[in-house]
């Protein structure tokens, strides 16, 4: 082997290993971002759980005749909190049930002008609306990040090393039927 060939071989090997390190690190960074985005969804779901007792308390004073509606919300919340530790599918089902229950509560609250006029209730409604939006935003961000992560794994140079180094495509959120039905609820 001549010196030139040796140099070329060493150069190629060096470049390849530098690229490998860069590609590995970039995929890890993308994976971290998706995990971080997922954590944000968690945070916002938790925030919604925390807001609900307050909402139910405020509404109870004005809505004595709607005991069942209020209880449905409380129950849905309890189930959602219990499902937090469970598998994602079960958890998402519990959260959609909670979304539906809250939507129902606000729909019924339309019939109680005094309740709707309460400042506290207005602020609470705003908080809940915002939290729903935040959950949606966090999911959207998670989906964007997952898309970037998956694209990076699937496109050419990095697709060579993604599988061998143990990267696998992330799953995205899809709107389920319950969510679609509830998308029309207006507060």
């Amino acid at each position: 082997m001549t010196g030139l060939q040796e140099g070329v071989a060493v150069g190629t090997g060096g470049a390849a290993s530098i690229w490998l390190v860069w590609a590995y690190n970039s995929l890890v960074a993308l994976r971290m971002r998706t995990q971080n985005a997922w954590a944000e969804v968690d945070v916002q779901l938790k925030r919604r759980h925390d807001l609900i007792p307050n909402l139910v308390e405020t509404a109870r004073g004005y809505m004595q005749h709607e005991r069942s509606t209020l209880e449905a919300v409380t129950q849905a919340r309890t189930q959602a909190v219990a499902a937090s530790a469970g598998p994602p599918a079960q958890r998402m089902a519990a959260e959609s049930a909670l979304t539906a229950a809250i939507g129902n509560l606000f729909a019924v609250a339309e019939n109680y002008p005094q309740l709707r006029a309460t400042e506290n209730m207005q602020l609470l409604q705003e908080e809940i609306t915002s939290t729903e939006n935040r959950i949606a935003a966090a999911r959207q961000f998670y989906n964007d990040e997952t898309m970037r992560y998956n694209t990076a794994q699937a496109t050419f140079p990095r697709s060579l090393m993604a599988r061998p180094f143990g990267f696998s495509p992330g799953t995205m959120f899809a709107a389920d039927e319950a969510d679609r039905a509830n998308a029309q609820v207006k507060f």
Partner: peptide
Amino acid sequence: PADLKELRLSDVVQEMAIAAG
């Protein structure tokens, strides 16, 4: 935060920041 419109403002900023990560 006790003013509904101003609370909404800070909420929307939070939402958009979450959407942008």
